[in-house]
């Protein structure tokens, strides 16, 4: 529930900060600022409305006999620590691939992912090597995508 309350607050705060930067820091004239200002005001108003609705829903939920929203598609991922672990891996893979190059980075990190996930060393090494080979064949050789292949200090 805390995420449900936090999200509209973060949106409203972010939008207000964006608008404040436009008005105070950049000093845009109305022709440039009018459109985002109008949208920003709508966003803040709707965020306030959503926040109020979440509070009401929180109260109703705590009452006996409350029903689950049929349109609800949430899987409880925000409360699941594994989601944040996966996000960490994703960020690590992005940073590692850029810093170590798109061959060595994925090879090492995919192997590490499988190893940490409890698969055998041989399987993990094979997965890492296959990933690097797939990147090389599909993206570099076939589609000739200009990826940074060397580690950043060698570029």
């Amino acid at each position: 529930m805390k995420f449900a309350l936090l999200f509209p607050v973060i949106i409203a705060a972010g939008v207000l900060a964006l608008l404040a930067s436009g008005y105070f820091a950049y000093g845009y004239d109305w022709e440039v600022f009018g459109f985002p200002l109008g949208l920003g005001v709508v966003c803040v108003a709707l965020a306030a409305f959503s926040l109020r609705a979440e509070f009401t829903a929180a109260r109703a939920e705590s009452s006996p006999g409350a029903k689950k929203d049929l349109m609800d598609e949430s899987e409880g991922l925000l409360e699941n620590p594994q989601t944040w672990v996966q996000l960490g891996w994703f960020i690590l893979l992005a940073a590692g691939s850029y810093l170590l190059g798109f061959i060595l980075g994925p090879a090492l990190l995919i192997a590490a992912y499988f190893q940490v996930d409890g698969r055998g060393t041989l399987v993990s090494l094979a997965a890492g090597a296959l990933s690097a080979a797939a990147v090389w064949v599909i993206f570099v050789k076939i589609f000739q995508t200009p990826l940074p292949l060397q580690p950043i200090f060698m570029r």
Binding site: F3, A4, F7, D69, M71, D72, E73, S74, E75, G76, L77, L78, T83, L87, F90
Partner: peptide, 11 residues
Amino acid sequence: GIMGLAMKELN
């Protein structure tokens, strides 16, 4: 991606 995750989970 993080925003999409929050949006999906919070409908």
